[in-house]
Design a protein around this nucleic acid. Structure first.
Length: 458
DNA sequence: TATGCCGGGTC
DNA sequence: GACCCGGCATA
């Protein structure tokens, strides 16, 4: 694959399908002499760009990249995702042009080809600053694979420069991930400066790319045995690992950092994670993006350090590596907090009302409503644009259901947790149509019944 | 077909 | 935000 040429890109077959690669290739009409270098470049571009472009589905790409195995990611999920069309755009970004930049080196004598390669690698590395690139390290478990071996330099060398990229621009991220804010504030400090470097190097184009990335949120989690620190900046994380765990030192350690932290990302709404995790609905989150996932997902995270939950579930990566999983971020506690709140809320609601439906009165509801509403916003993330009232209503019913449902597909279905009829006593059923005035407001409005939340007997 | 409730509209 | 309802999914 290394030898792949511009024209060679096969549409469907993944390996080479890296759009970025294609783009980069276009520009190449260089002398044969520089072939080696070019090859290198192509690979690089492929690895780097692809992920960038696919921020949303990045997890997969990243993972793959890690092993340097070009993988074709089915574009099934397009949430925030990219579609072919987008690919072209990317190509236009300065990033690609950068490839050619390395060209000059290629003119060197054959004898210095190696040098060229290295330089090219470095250049690429610097260009690859995108956080996504970092991801590769996710497979900390098997560091051996591609990265270090093939062009070890690239991987790490860029480390310092590159990763920071993400750091500086996360503000919005935090916004989405409510729990995170405090997360890496400290770390953030360090990253920004480096982020600047990146910018300079990458140029506006990348900038744009980043923007597009905006849909991607992630964080870096220290995998060191008892650490588990989470930072939004890879640079910060590296530093953290290097200083606290590896002991600031040789280059060796410099490289190893990568293996001691993993990137955890919370997909924004799209929260794909089609692969391994059923959460990210929201992702998101999303998200909290972790939102959707609420209960189910959070459990693992809530215990934070106990990787058991997410970690175990994760295929290759380390504990909590779960890409796109909100939990990591939420580790800080919020997640659990939500969980509790939600449950609590639910319980309260139930306990207060179910006992005497007849006595129940709307007013109380309103009170709890507000609370629940609050929760709902946080937990559920954004499934759809919902009126406040709806949100909490959904929350009430949804939360309970969520526990069993465990967040399904991020797709639309994710938002609609309909429980089968008869799972709960709905006002209509209890009071009958004739006594509609006894119905809870939600029922009257044809909303999810709040008085008899679906307790899914199952 | 009845029911539950989502999604969206109106006030 | 409260209220209402069309329309879909499900039993």
């Amino acid at each position: 694959m290394a030898a792949m040429r511009p024209g060679e890109r096969t549409p469907s077959s993944g390996p080479q399908s890296c759009p970025a690669t294609a783009a980069g290739l276009q520009t190449d009409t260089r002398q044969p002499g520089a072939e080696i270098q070019e090859t290198l470049v192509y690979m690089q571009c492929c690895g780097q760009e692809a992920p960038n472009m696919t921020e949303s589905n990045g997890h997969r790409n990243i993972m793959n990249m890690n092993h340097q195995v070009p993988v074709f990611v089915p574009q099934g999920r397009t949430e925030g995702g990219w579609t072919h069309p987008s690919a072209p755009q990317q190509t236009t970004t300065p990033t690609m042009p950068s490839c050619p930049v390395s060209a000059p080196y290629s003119f060197r004598s054959p004898g210095s080809v190696e040098m060229d390669e290295i330089m090219a690698a470095m250049v690429l590395t610097s260009l690859s600053c995108s956080p996504v690139v970092q991801n590769p390290r996710q497979s900390q478990n098997d560091p051996v694979p591609g990265p270090s071996s093939g062009g070890g330099d690239m991987e790490c060398g860029g480390g310092e420069l590159s990763d920071s990229g993400s750091s500086g621009y996360w503000s919005w991220d935090h916004g989405n991930i409510s729990p995170a804010p405090s997360l890496s504030v400290t770390e953030m400090d360090s990253s920004p400066d480096e982020g600047l470097h990146m910018e300079l190097e990458q140029g506006v184009g990348l900038h744009a790319a980043k923007r597009s990335k905006s849909s991607f949120r992630g964080a870096y989690r220290c995998l060191w045995p008892s650490c588990g620190k989470v930072l939004t900046s890879s640079v910060g994380m590296k530093r953290h690992v290097r200083v606290l765990h590896l002991g600031s030192g040789s280059e060796q350690s410099h490289r190893e950092e990568d293996f001691y932290y993993t990137k955890i990302s919370c997909e924004a709404p799209p929260a794909p994670a089609p692969t391994s995790s059923p959460h990210i609905p929201w992702a998101s989150c999303g998200s909290p993006p972790g939102p959707g996932p609420g209960p189910g997902l959070q459990i693992p995270s809530s215990t934070s350090s106990s990787p058991s939950g997410s970690g175990s579930s994760r295929p290759s990566s380390a504990p909590g590596s779960a890409p796109g999983q909100p939990s990591p971020l939420s580790k800080s506690a919020p997640s659990s907090f939500w969980q509790i709140q939600t449950d609590h809320l639910y319980q309260v609601t139930v306990s207060c009302r179910s006992p005497s439906p007849g006595c129940w009165t709307p007013p109380p509801l309103t009170v709890s409503n507000q609370h629940s509403h609050h929760n709902s916003q946080v937990v559920r993330g954004r499934c759809r644009s919902v009126s406040v009232g709806e949100q909490w209503l959904q929350q009430n019913s949804a939360t309970s259901r969520l526990t069993t449902v465990t967040a399904d597909s991020p797709s639309r279905s994710h938002c609609s947790f309909r429980k089968g009829r008869g799972e709960a006593k709905k006002c209509r059923k209890v009071y009958g149509v004739e006594r509609k005035e006894l119905w809870c407001t939600a029922c009257r409005w044809k909303k999810a019944c709040q008085r008899f939340p679906a307790l899914t007997s199952a």
